[in-house]
Design a protein around this nucleic acid. Structure first.
Length: 875
RNA sequence: GGGCGAUUAGCUCAGCGGGAGAGCGCUACCUUGACACGGUAGAGGCCAGUGGUUCGACACCACUAUCGCCCACCA
């Protein structure tokens, strides 16, 4: 087109090729600094910190979902003129990473102990530099608009200072303590685990009844009997009351152990008598505490029996049958083994059955922290979206056990506690938290050694929202961007992470870590199952991006993201998204080929044709709707609204209607070009947060602008709303559809004409259509696809469904009769309502009005159908 | 053992007091100068069951059934 300005492009290929543009565009965005935040800016701040993926990690569908949504939120705010910061980074992922490197060492036939601590940690860093952070490149591929200049790692220098500062302060505030407790122990990883690193599953066990002197106890853990130091019964249990205070003999050992009375025992379960093993069971430990029972450890850290005797050296699972056999031989097995399903804890990382183990560990006392974390949500300083998931959050923070934070690992933040030779603990002083102590705080001795253990990974990730912004220093970033605006993550880590950030944030900072928590669902396959390697149903976003493009991948996950519900995915969905992206591509291409332009802006309201009034009205409505859906994190709906507006309204109707004036040229064509340009520019901007690449390519081609990344985000113009035009188009569409249906059902060929014979005076309801059509000119140019489909002419004001000679009169009569029947039924139903006094009295006025409309519409339908029936040949 | 949620078209899901919807799949027709990664027209549903509230219930309430998920130290 001759009007094209030089920088605009019209030479786009008929199929969008994402691979060709995505990488180049991303680099350009980064190079131009679009994602770089300025803490000194006057613009309002908008900040999201990324949930740090594991260094060992690779981008999976869960990331694709979360990152797409975070990117969309940030991109929209950026377009709106906010100073946006989306801060990237990674988590050192204690156990995971250590395990990966240990496995690598194992292939060389070595263990971490062969290397020693320092060399091993060096080795992990080396691994991290070489192979870690693969996911960062994959984030670029997805289009994540993060500020790479602010990338952080949970083990980097600044974050380590934050960890030490918080630890020391909490210690001095009495919120961190050391204690000997029963903790969850993984005999394979050889470390303590927190409660949430333990997964429970219902496993098959066997309940064995064993006679201890005058009592019979039932247990699923026969092997721990070697460590029994009592038998407990309920204090009110009359069966055993006389035995309380006496002693019974522990089989195989000859040891005498006391019978104690304890409320914990359920008299209705089993025999009502419980063996008590304080060193190997958390309940028994507490019973032991209450009755001052000795703790007898009979198993080492690998789960091997250490009690002297015939079972010494056996693994716990070898010991169980061996001891059972010995008990049977001793004649103390009371009943046959009974199958029994019970919940068994497994190590989240390696699935090994967790062993409760008595050991000295560091704990966070959570009561006050958890209360503060709960209150922050209760009083609305932080909002959880969707709100129904707040219940889960409260359920957890309101009933939380103390958190075991020490791990017997080497990869992580070393616990900042030093011991003198007398075992006194020294923690860096308040105000000098990052300075290593040089003398024991208790006895002044100078020789100190640091605690060998490291902190739970979640300790450092719990500080993420402020440690990444520079805390404990008072940095400009912290001042500008804290509290952050949104924390977006899957609902599965509400306990692991969200609650912890809330605890630390409310403790260490003057305000909450984030204003809103947006929880997404989990990724599922097309049949709603979890994705897992063993099911073979894992979908890979990298594969999708390769074959369908980053935009299609993003649109697919975003379109599935209904708040708080799981996101089913399948390759077909992604193909659909790819098709949609291509549709947008081609429609914009059509606009470009026809000289669409944003230079002039849409024509004045009084000079707009019906289709122009209609599409601009719809654009205003959709803009407002999409904007609101973004505000409320309704991503799936926002995508759905845009999908249908773009495809059904812009492409299928407006573009087709636009062909009429475009073919005529002149002022009408000018006006159409301006409207096309305006509508497509707005549509591309609305779509940009979710599908950034294709929209950038098209927007710059259409407008000649440097980028769409900087906006502006469209704002709806309420003055464009035009209910009359929307109603007019609805009538027009209904008529065209009716004509097309008639042609299809009658088997009328595309080029074949049909003549008119319906007298409009018999169908007055059609009259308003004529005005609409008259405004458009010839009906045979209506509606694109309709152009040849419709194929008959508007004859002055006379129009009609014209029955050609060759139609199947009987079939048409049958169809019309059926339609007449349902119209009469509708009329009867609605009339019945309107004759109902109760209805008229109680129903709200709009409802009544709607009923009247329906009655009137049914009436005209009946008249029209009768007229058509009468018009049939042979009537 | 507690808590939460689901049950709507073949599949995956929206709708949540007044005319049953979408995507994919399916049927028929169409190589139409943006797009076959397309177009047009269709078929397909006692909205899990039973009671209740209401002028009116797929939507609200109660119970039942089935299926999920989360939490949980009854051996």
């Amino acid at each position: 087109m001759t009007e094209d300005s030089p920088q605009r492009r019209t030479d786009l290929p008929p199929q969008y090729d994402p691979g060709q543009v995505e990488g180049e565009l991303y680099d350009r965005w980064v190079d131009r600094g679009y994602f770089t935040a300025d803490a000194g800016s006057d613009k309002p701040a908008y900040c999201i910190v990324i949930p740090p993926p594991n260094v060992t990690g690779s981008l999976h569908m869960g990331h694709a979902l979360g990152h797409t949504l975070m990117d969309a939120l940030t991109r929209r705010r950026r377009m709106q003129g906010y100073e946006t910061l989306w801060l990237p980074g990674m988590d050192h992922a204690g156990i995971s990473t250590q395990t990966v490197v240990e496995r690598e060492l194992a292939t060389e036939g070595r263990s971490r102990h062969d290397l020693g601590r320092e060399a091993f940690v060096d080795r992990v860093w080396q691994w991290k530099e070489e192979y870690g952070g693969k996911i960062l490149g994959q984030m670029r591929r997805l289009g994540d608009g993060v500020d790479w200049g602010r990338e952080r790692f949970t083990l980097d220098e600044g974050l380590s200072r934050a960890v030490r500062t918080v630890f020391a302060r909490m210690y001095h505030d009495g919120l961190i303590y050391q204690a000997e407790r029963i903790i969850n122990w993984c005999p394979r990883c050889l470390t303590a685990l927190s409660d949430i690193e333990v997964e429970h599953s219902d496993d098959d066990g066997e309940l064995v009844s064993i006679r201890y002197g005058d009592l019979v106890v039932a247990t699923t853990r026969v092997e721990t009997m070697l460590g029994d130091t009592a038998v407990a019964v309920h204090p009110d249990d009359d069966r055993y009351r006389h035995l309380v205070g006496t002693e019974v003999e522990l089989p195989l050992t000859g040891r005498k152990i006391p019978v104690v009375a304890d409320e914990h025992v359920d008299p209705a379960f089993g025999t009502g008598a419980v063996k008590v093993t304080p060193a190997h069971d958390p309940n028994d430990f507490e019973i032991g505490q209450r009755h001052a029972l000795p703790t007898l450890t009979i198993m080492d850290e690998r789960g091997v029996i250490t009690a002297p005797g015939p079972f010494e050296g056996l693994d716990r699972y070898e010991a169980r049958p061996a001891i059972t056999a010995a008990l049977r031989e001793a004649g103390v097995i009371e009943a046959e083994k009974r199958p029994y399903v019970h919940a068994v804890g497994h190590c989240e990382r390696c699935k090994t059955v967790v062993e409760p183990r008595l050991s000295l560990q560091w704990f966070v006392e959570v009561a006050t922290l958890a209360r503060a974390a709960g209150d922050a949500v209760r009083d609305g300083r932080t909002v959880i979206s969707p709100p129904q998931l707040a219940a889960r959050y409260f359920g957890w923070v309101d009933d939380m056990h103390d958190w075991c934070i020490s791990r017997q690992l080497w990869w992580g933040h070393r616990i900042p506690v030093w011991y003198c030779s007398d075992g006194h603990a020294t923690v860096p002083a308040r105000g000098a938290e990052t300075v290593d102590p040089t003398a024991c705080a208790t006895c002044g001795r100078p020789e100190l050694r640091q605690d060998p253990d490291v902190l739970d990974t979640w300790f450092s990730s719990g500080l993420w929202p402020f440690s990444t912004l520079g805390w404990p220093d008072q940095t400009p970033d912290l001042a500008k961007f804290y509290p952050t605006d949104v924390l977006l993550t899957g609902y599965d880590i509400i306990f692991f992470w969200v609650a912890r950030m809330m605890m630390f944030g409310t403790y260490a900072m003057p305000d909450v870590p984030f204003r809103t928590v947006v929880l997404t669902g989990l990724i599922r396959d097309a049949r709603g199952r979890k994705m897992s390697k063993s099911w073979g149903n894992v979908l890979d976003p990298l594969d999708w991006m390769e074959r369908y493009g980053a935009d299609a991948t993003r649109f697919t996950v975003a379109r599935g993201a209904n708040p708080g519900t799981d996101v089913p995915l399948s390759e077909e969905w992604c193909q659909g998204s790819r098709n949609f992206v291509n549709k947008v591509w081609n429609a914009t291409r059509f606009a470009l080929l026809n000289g669409a332009s944003t230079a002039a802006g849409p024509p004045a309201r009084g000079e707009r044709s019906l289709p122009e009034r209609w599409i601009l009205s719809r654009l205003a409505a959709v803009t407002a709707e999409v904007d609101e859906l973004f505000e409320t994190y309704e991503f799936a709906k926002a995508c759905d609204v845009l999908f249908h507006f773009a495809w059904d309204e812009v492409c299928d109707w407006y573009v087709e209607l636009a062909k009429v004036p475009l073919s005529r040229g002149g002022r009408e064509a000018e006006s159409t070009r301006a409207v096309l340009g305006h509508v497509f520019a707005a549509l591309l901007r609305l779509l940009h947060p979710v599908v950034p690449f294709v929209t950038e390519t098209l927007y710059t081609a259409l407008t000649g602008a440097e980028t769409v990344v900087r906006g502006p985000w469209p704002t709806p113009d309420p003055a464009d709303r035009d209910p009359d035009a929307e109603a007019g188009l609805a009538r027009l569409r209904a008529l065209v559809t009716e004509i097309r249906r008639f042609r299809t059902e009658q088997g009328i060929r595309p080029g074949q004409r049909i003549g008119a014979s319906l007298d409009l005076t018999a169908a007055p309801a059609l009259a308003p259509l004529l005005d609409d059509i008259a405004a458009l000119g010839r009906l045979d140019l209506l509606g694109g696809a309709a152009a040849t489909d419709v194929g008959f002419e508007l004859d002055g004001v006379r129009v009609g469904l014209v029955l050609a000679a060759a139609i199947d009169v009987a079939a048409e009569r049958a169809r019309l009769t059926k339609a007449l029947g349902s119209a009469e039924k509708e009329l009867a139903g609605v009339t019945g309502k309107l004759d109902n006094a109760d209805f008229l009295r109680r129903a709200p006025e709009p409802v009544v009005a709607k009923m009247r409309d329906r009655r009137s519409a049914a009436g005209t339908d009946i008249a029209r159908l009768r007229a058509q029936l009468d018009a049939l040949p042979g009537a």
